[in-house]
Amino acid sequence: MKRFNITGTKYTPDISFDPNVASFSISGVSTPENSLDFYQSTYRILEQYALEGSQKLEANIRLVYFNTSSAKCLYDIFRKLVSVSSSGKQVIVNWIYDDDDEDILESGEDYSELLPLEFRFVPVPPGSDR
């Protein structure tokens, strides 16, 4: 498998996947014009990792804002991570949020209640690079 990167914009998040260190991350803002189109390549990468990956996968999610269509796409990404987990690999989701942003924290908590994944909630000071 190859590394995968999408550089974020004002409306789309940074997305990176490095199979060599089993790391997947999404960060920034997610309000693309067409969320389904934007996230298609990410779905394919995670589907491929479920079949070919050999290590546990750590997913770092640090979104500062996402719209409703992105919320559905995030749910679909988490479902792909469930598939990775079901293929015998450990999956850990680090939900990283500004410690004063209760809305983002609650969104992560909602996902964690809906999905059989290990979520870790990581508060950081607003504006930090973690």
Rank of each mutant, 00 (worst) to 15 (best):
G108E: 00
A22I: 08
I45K: 12
D37I: 11
K10T: 11
R3G: 13
Q40V: 11
I6H: 05
Y43F: 14
N67G: 01
S107F: 09
A22W: 08
I104R: 03
P126T: 11
S27K: 10
L114S: 15
M1H: 12
Y39I: 02
N34H: 09
I92T: 14
A50T: 03
K89F: 06
F38P: 01
S85G: 15
G53Q: 06
V84A: 06
F119Y: 03
K89R: 09
S16Y: 08
S41H: 15
G28H: 02
R79K: 13
G108A: 01
S107A: 15
I15E: 04
R3D: 14
E52W: 11
R44I: 15
V29S: 03
I61Q: 03
P13A: 07
K89L: 09
N67V: 00
I77D: 04
V21G: 08
E33N: 09
A59G: 07
R120L: 05
S30N: 02
S128M: 10
S86L: 14
L36K: 13
I77V: 07
N34R: 09
D103R: 06
S35D: 00
N67S: 00
E109Y: 05
I15Y: 04
N94D: 07
S112V: 00
T68K: 11
S70K: 01
P19K: 04
S112G: 02
L51I: 13
D76S: 15
S87I: 06
Y43N: 11
P123F: 03
T12L: 02
P123C: 05
S86V: 10
S35M: 00
F38V: 00
Q48W: 14
N60W: 11
S41Q: 15
V84N: 06
V122G: 03
V122Q: 05
I45F: 10
F66H: 08
Q40S: 15
S30P: 04
A71G: 07
L105C: 03
P19C: 06
